[in-house]
């Protein structure tokens, strides 16, 4: 009798928990859409400037999100350019060459790096800047390059782990075939193992891209500012979407700016959700596409 009661109340509680979580999530997102939905449009991105002029860099955009969007895209491109080769190479080493104690030690290190809060990564970037500033040149300050380096460090353990698990989960039959036919270890990796795990590695890369796009704590310590326009070089400060949202939340001066903040939040959600869905889709589809090409 008591057992029946416990079981029944557990069922009830579980459904309530699921419902509450769904409702909380939908309320937050719905609230954003309702507040910011009206601001979506060309005007949100380019302000009063003609879109073509802005895109061709003929005119600065002052009252739109254009510089922040470009800043975020540059951040993503820069950090992934650094992180992908390093992460995949280290992942290959972990899966294919590393054995025994060394492997345990390395994977513990990467786990720690993966768990370190992003603000600590930002702090490390900031201290690197101070270090360079003191020992080399007084002109060095926080910049796009430092942010890219820090963000690359943030997603590095993630890329290593995805590559490693993707390679390790390959069917032993496939793994053995090429060496049995006389292929070298490297040939096996490049011709057989990597193409076989491309969909997992690819979706890992896309998820890491999403992480770069959303992270605020790292860039607020390493060079994102509220109004910089388009960055002139990788050594200058820049604007970015997540930092813009944070800045607006505390410093907005009127309903117009606030609406732009909501618009930026929606754009960032769309970007991150889009990347996430692409990654999920890729896991399922890419393999079949590559197989039946």
């Amino acid at each position: 009798m008591i057992r029946r009661l416990i079981e029944g109340s557990l069922i009830l509680f579980s459904w309530a928990a699921g419902l509450l979580l769904t409702l909380a999530f939908l309320t937050l997102v719905g609230f954003l859409l309702q507040k910011g939905g009206t601001s979506l449009g060309v005007n949100l991105i380019f302000g009063d400037t003609a879109p073509l002029d802005a895109l061709l860099l003929r005119q600065q955009v002052f009252d739109g999100l254009f510089p922040a969007i470009i800043g975020t895209l540059l951040l993503i491109a820069g950090s992934m350019l650094i992180a992908i080769p390093l992460g995949i190479a280290a992942g290959i080493y972990m899966a294919e060459y590393c054995r025994g104690r060394v492997k345990t030690f390395f994977s513990l290190l990467f786990d720690i790096l993966a768990g370190v809060p992003s603000i600590i990564v930002g702090l490390a970037g900031l201290s690197l800047t101070i270090f360079l500033h003191r020992s080399f040149s007084a002109q060095i300050s926080t910049s796009l390059l430092i942010s890219c380096l820090s963000l690359a460090l943030l997603v590095l353990p993630y890329l290593i782990r995805t590559t490693q698990t993707a390679l390790e989960s390959i069917d032993p039959l496939i793994r053995m075939t090429a060496p049995a036919l006389g292929a070298s270890r490297l040939q096996n990796i490049i011709r057989v193992l990597l193409p076989n795990s491309i969909s997992e590695i690819g979706s890992g890369i896309i998820l890491a891209t999403g992480r770069c796009a959303e992270d605020t704590a790292v860039i607020m310590l390493t060079g994102a500012v509220a109004s910089a326009g388009l960055p002139r070089s990788i050594f200058s400060q820049y604007e970015a979407l997540p930092f813009y949202i944070y800045y607006i939340s505390s410093q907005y001066s009127g309903p117009d700016e606030l609406r732009r903040g909501f618009g930026a939040a929606i754009l960032l959600i769309l970007l991150c959700a889009g990347l996430l869905l692409t990654a999920l889709w890729m896991q399922r589809r890419l393999k079949t596409i590559l197989l039946y090409r």
Binding site: Y93, L113, I120, L153, I160
Partner: peptide
């Protein structure tokens, strides 16, 4: 390590490990 390429992969792993330590050292 047996080959040149293995050295490259090893270097990447060691670099990533060192970065973890470097963050700690900076702090």
């Amino acid at each position: 390590p047996h080959s040149f390429t293995e050295y490259i992969f090893l270097t990447a792993a060691v670099c990533s490990g060192l970065l973890t330590a470097a963050v700690f050292l900076f702090l």
